[in-house]
Design a protein around this nucleic acid. Structure first.
Length: 280
DNA sequence: GTCCAGGACGTGG
DNA sequence: CCACGTCATGGA
């Protein structure tokens, strides 16, 4: 029933940091156990030191979803290029970028614009509950594109998407009509994959980078949200004027600097910086 | 009540 | 290209 994985001490992993940092929206921790839905599976998982114990999925799925195959130390040593990122790495040991599903990630980050994480979680939970496959135990899978596409804008407004409802609606219809969209994007290099994602309504530069980072393993992607922008201004690019709205030009300048400074795993550096967004 | 949140889009300069 | 207004919603 309960399966376990003995983690390799030389390849660190931290469940709390990984599920609590805001990259995935369907996990909650209760009594030391994380419960959530991923890949159409209702999973319960906990970590005790080097031991990972879980139900609801097989070992191969857990290893893949939590990216346990990735050599984290190699990535971190490659991005560890200044005191700021060094401190962030020290504060979130074992944080990993998950491998999430493209369609769920696309819709989730359309729902994530100009709002906060609790509200995003609520929207996704309601969509899953109303339009996703029942998994038992009160859990539901995130709906696939054919299940979500028939929804009207009002249906999705009913899931508290607000003005994002027509975007999610149209994006779901596009995916349902074109089942190969994700495989095609996965095969493209970063810049072209980003251009393709920008073709979805409600997906701008920031959402596109999140989707590429969390669902397509495009680790050059460096999403610049308000927190990251503030931190980059304070600690890396103090010469930038702190004017209110961010132009597309400034976005590309910050992300471009990050790729130059952190290298091709800049997206991992971004997650560590985002994880410590409040302090320092 | 005001401000802010893992922003994007349309319109007008 | 850029600036500006607008778009729902909930928590602090």
């Amino acid at each position: 029933m309960e399966k376990t994985i003995a983690l390799d001490p030389g390849n660190p992993f931290d469940l709390d940091a990984t599920l609590g940092c805001g990259q995935a929206f369907r996990w909650e921790k209760q009594n030391g156990v994380w419960r959530g839905v991923a890949g159409g599976r209702a999973i319960a998982i906990r970590q005790d030191g080097n031991l990972l114990s879980f139900t609801g999925a097989d070992e191969a799925f857990v290893r893949r979803y939590f990216a346990l195959d990735i050599d984290l130390r190699a990535i971190l040593s490659s991005v560890d290029r200044d005191p700021r990122i060094h401190e962030a790495i020290g504060r979130c040991p074992g944080l990993r970028i998950l491998r999430q599903e493209p369609f769920e990630t696309l819709i989730s980050y359309i729902c994530a614009t100009n709002t906060n994480i609790p509200a995003i979680k609520r929207r996704i939970a309601i969509m899953a509950e109303r339009y996703g496959r029942r998994l038992g135990g009160g859990a539901s899978a995130f709906p696939d594109a054919p299940s979500l596409a028939p929804c009207s804008e009002d249906d999705l407004r009913g899931c508290v998407l607000g003005y994002r409802a027509p975007y999610a609606c149209a994006a779901a219809a596009m995916c349902a009509r074109d089942a190969g969209w994700a495989e095609r994007i996965a095969a493209l290099p970063y810049a072209e994959a980003k251009r393709a994602l920008l073709g979805f309504p409600g997906v701008g530069p920031k959402a596109a980078d999140c989707i590429l980072l969390f669902a397509f393993e495009k680790y050059e992607a460096f999403p610049v949200d308000v927190h990251i922008r503030r931190m980059m201004h304070r600690h890396y690019l103090p010469a930038l004027p702190d004017g209110k709205p961010m132009t597309g030009r400034e976005y590309d300048l910050i992300a471009g600097f990050a790729r130059e400074h952190f290298g091709r795993y800049a997206g991992w550096a971004q997650e560590y910086l985002f994880c410590v967004r409040d302090g320092g």
